[in-house]
Design a protein around this nucleic acid. Structure first.
Lengths: 225, 225
DNA sequence: AATAAATCATGACAAATATCATATTTATAA
DNA sequence: TTATAAATATGATATTTGTCATGATTTATT
């Protein structure tokens, strides 16, 4: 199993604030695991006993409603920590985490994280900054949901995915989402999302190859009103 | 000016995790101030040089859009800290804070807060828990905005305000909001909010005395589909 | 108290979005 | 490979919500 102190993934998250000794200790009790596309990492209501450090892949955090929709609130990619919010508030999770492609994660037990939060103020502060950032993102999403049209939200989502998660060599978005996933990010019906995507295609903003989407005019997408 | 170490308000926020010495130090450099109803405490884009501890009153955190609407993301009441997110992420504020009634706040400079975050892990952890809680709230709001109708969201808002901020002796909600404020919380047009309130009135769920709203059937409101 | 300015309220209509139906295409499995 | 299921696509229509107009109240100001 890999050693945390040598793992480059930690550069992208709060674990970088830990000392070498702390990392060695964590390395000794972490569990490395592989998760297949579509698998649920944790469910809504589940009590988390640690955090996941995402070494590879991407997952969605979403909440199911009675009517069968599940709203995607956030996507967590390679390099980020998963489950830190629930761990810290010591409540059960309010969201479900589902792998969007094959993933590789390390599970770090709660006791280790809490010990380091107590001892290492740099680590605490780094987690605090992460959370502050997530909170800003969430507040911005609330505003978008309230004030922007489905068309605008979908355009922004495509631009966000392109900017944040990148593209394949052929130019298609590297994160492969179903039309339903797009609808669940934007907060609309699947048919509405499909309709808007078709329109973007007609307007030359995107092109599609099967379910793969290629952004043809990123600036144009960002200008969508 | 009052002394922080004797102030009971701190029991309700992270400042309770500070030691007596730390509180005495903060007490020496805080600024007590009164803010009138409608006054802006800080604007979107403003860089905050400290946090506000709300001793009395209530304010809204909102974001203005081009079309003139401003979405209310959160309300901060007596006992809570204001501005901690922006302070910690060391970015300018993404939201504007506006007093909803006359307020009394203490301003604590950034340097003091940061010093204590470095030295006192209990304080760090308490702030972390606060932020985790706010993040959960925001994520829940995103889901509501996506999956519930204006009617449901307004019913929940009324129930939330009643449960969280209480009522006057005559049973009316103690937080007095305009119809426009309700619309801006729910994320709808003012006319739509008014229409739904009128309907709630017809259905006997609420009654109104001028702009004051009295909840007549809280359980019923919570059952609104 | 009278006037002006906000705010609240409601109707009529328009626009955005959801729902239902039904092809068509693409993926999956026997 | 073919059968089967799942995902994508699009039309028709219903529902929700927004916008504009207008009047009634309430609140603030002179």
């Amino acid at each position: 199993m890999g050693k945390c102190e040598q793992c480059i993934i930690k550069q992208f998250n709060s674990l970088k604030a830990l000392t070498k000794e702390e990392l060695v200790r964590i390395s000794g009790c972490k569990t490395s695991m592989k998760i297949k596309k579509g698998e649920v990492i944790f469910e809504e209501g589940e009590v988390l006993n640690g955090v996941y450090c995402v070494k590879d892949g991407i997952c969605k955090l979403s909440k199911l409603s009675e009517n069968g929709k599940d709203q995607i609130v956030k996507m967590v990619v390679k390099g980020q920590l998963l489950g830190q919010r629930s761990l810290i508030s010591e409540e059960s999770s309010n969201l479900q985490a589902t792998a969007l492609n094959d993933m590789e994660v390390c599970f770090i037990p709660k006791s280790e994280i809490f010990a380091d939060l107590q001892k290492n103020p740099k680590f605490s502060f780094s987690v605090l900054q992460d959370m502050a950032h997530d909170l800003r993102d969430s507040d911005d999403i609330i505003v978008n949901m309230a004030q922007k049209s489905v068309r605008q939200r979908l355009a922004e989502t495509l631009a966000y995915i392109s900017d944040s998660f990148g593209t394949n060599p052929d130019g298609t978005l590297s994160v492969l989402l179903s039309r339903e996933d797009y609808a669940n990010i934007v907060g609309t019906a699947t048919e509405s999302a499909i309709r808007v995507l078709s329109q973007f295609k007609k307007e030359g903003l995107i092109s599609t190859v099967g379910k793969y989407i290629k952004i043809e005019d990123l600036a144009g997408l960002k200008r969508v009103e």
